[in-house]
């Protein structure tokens, strides 16, 4: 039962059972949405492989994937490719390596 009568009451957005889960990952897809797409932990594991703490971060609720990539000094395109590859059982080691590579800012 949701306590909607409490003003401001907002659990972690998008985690309620009935919330719709998108399947397509875009640059604007938030970290939280990606985590919800892969409840068995594949996305969280990929974040771990990239050395991102995002799966545990309060910012995940709002952070789009491309902004997360920039925040962690990674190539947004390579990051997007790696996360999209999850849908087909990926990414490959090479895709992970490209996404994990740090770029000077």
């Amino acid at each position: 039962m949701s306590r909607t009568a409490i003003p401001g009451f907002r659990p972690a957005h998008g985690v309620a059972d009935g919330d719709a889960v998108r399947r397509e990952i875009r640059g604007s897809t938030t970290i939280l949405e990606i985590l919800r797409m892969y409840p068995d932990g594949e996305a969280a594991k990929l974040m771990s492989q990239l050395y991102w703490p995002c799966a545990h971060c309060g910012g995940a609720v709002r952070e789009p994937l491309t902004l997360a990539a920039q925040r962690h000094a990674r190539d947004p395109r390579a990051v997007l490719i790696a996360f999209r590859a999850l849908e087909h059982g990926g990414p490959t080691d090479g895709e992970v390596a490209l996404a994990a590579e740090r770029h000077s800012r």
Partner: peptide
């Protein structure tokens, strides 16, 4: 006081 820890779910609350 979440700081930067993930927000509580309804079950947590």
């Amino acid at each position: 006081a979440n700081g930067k820890v993930f927000p509580m779910s309804e079950a947590d609350m």
